[in-house]
Amino acid sequence: MDQQEQPAAPVKKSLFNIRQDHLSLLALIEENDGVLDDEMQAALQLSEEDFKEKAISYGFLIRKLDAESDTIAAEIKRLQGLKQRADNRAELFRKTLDEGMKQFGYDKIDSELLKISYRKSNPVELSETFLDDILQFTTVSMKIVEGMEDKAADAGINEDILQLLDLKPSASKTRVGDALKQGVKVPGASIVEKKNLQIR
């Protein structure tokens, strides 16, 4: 019986199930930051010769990379949790310092190593129902650009295809702010003045 046909003993993600040339190819791809040159692209392709053996090798290689991806994802999640906790603690101290500065009448504190001050900003604020309050009186739709009907038809795009797409309107705070500065009354929008605590 051919060696490939013999039942294999269970192996836990063993590198012995991956051909050495495939491991070398993976190392080259990683060294090249995932960019394939013509030689690597050719080596990556599977041929009919020894296809079953190569397919099994690829399968174990994919399983190995999936496991690495899961490990990285878990580490990212752990680091994101640490970052969130650090952000929360920093915000707690920033809020406490801000309240103290205002309570005792300080606009600025200087030392040889640290400067605490306020930076003024004028952000645009939108009400929570800003979009809904406007969209309830409107309809939003798409149409094929005038003059491009024939090209759209050649590409298989028609009004029925457009109906399959969801449009999600969003507000541009930049344009809203420009309108407010020009005196346009925009319901649910306003420019507010804020003093942001900064530490340098």
Rank of each mutant, 00 (worst) to 15 (best):
S141H: 09
D160F: 08
V184D: 00
I134F: 05
S57A: 10
F60S: 03
Q80H: 08
I157S: 06
K54A: 05
M142F: 11
R19L: 03
D2N: 15
S111C: 04
S117D: 11
I134P: 00
E112G: 11
N158I: 09
S117W: 05
I109V: 13
S57F: 01
N158W: 08
I72W: 07
A153F: 10
S121K: 08
L23F: 00
G156A: 11
E128W: 02
R119F: 06
Q198S: 10
I18E: 00
S57L: 02
G59D: 12
D132S: 09
I62Y: 06
A90M: 11
F60C: 05
M40A: 02
A67Q: 14
E91K: 13
A179H: 00
I29A: 02
K12N: 12
Q80Y: 10
F16V: 08
K185N: 14
M40H: 01
V140M: 03
K168A: 15
T96N: 13
S47A: 13
E75F: 06
V176Q: 00
L23C: 02
E149V: 05
K173D: 02
E159K: 11
T138V: 12
L165K: 12
D70K: 14
E159S: 15
Q84A: 15
S111E: 03
I161N: 03
L114T: 10
E53H: 07
Q136D: 09
K108H: 07
S190I: 06
E30G: 01
Q84N: 12
D166T: 13
G59P: 01
T174A: 02
I161S: 04
A74V: 01
K52D: 08
D87G: 00
D133Q: 08
Y118C: 09
L23K: 08
L162F: 06
E49V: 14
Q4Y: 10
A90R: 15
R19D: 04
D33W: 10
L25F: 05
N158H: 10
E146L: 09
K173M: 01
P169C: 10
F137A: 04
Q20R: 08
A74F: 04
S172F: 01
A43L: 11
Y118K: 02
V145Y: 06
P169Q: 05
Q41H: 09
D133E: 11
K12Y: 11
I199F: 04
T71K: 15
L164E: 15
E49Q: 15
Y106L: 10
E125N: 08
R200W: 07
L167W: 07
T96D: 12
G59T: 07
F51C: 11
A67E: 15
E49N: 15
E125T: 08
V35M: 09
L61T: 02
D98V: 00
G177S: 06
L131E: 05
D154W: 04
K83F: 03
Q198D: 05
N17D: 06
F51M: 10
E5R: 14
F60W: 09
E146N: 07
I18L: 00
S111H: 03
S14M: 04
G100M: 12
K108W: 02
T129C: 03
D2G: 04
N196M: 06
T139H: 10
D33T: 10
L79I: 10
S170K: 14
G188C: 04
F137N: 14
T96E: 11
V11Y: 02
G59R: 09
D38N: 13
A8T: 11
D133I: 05
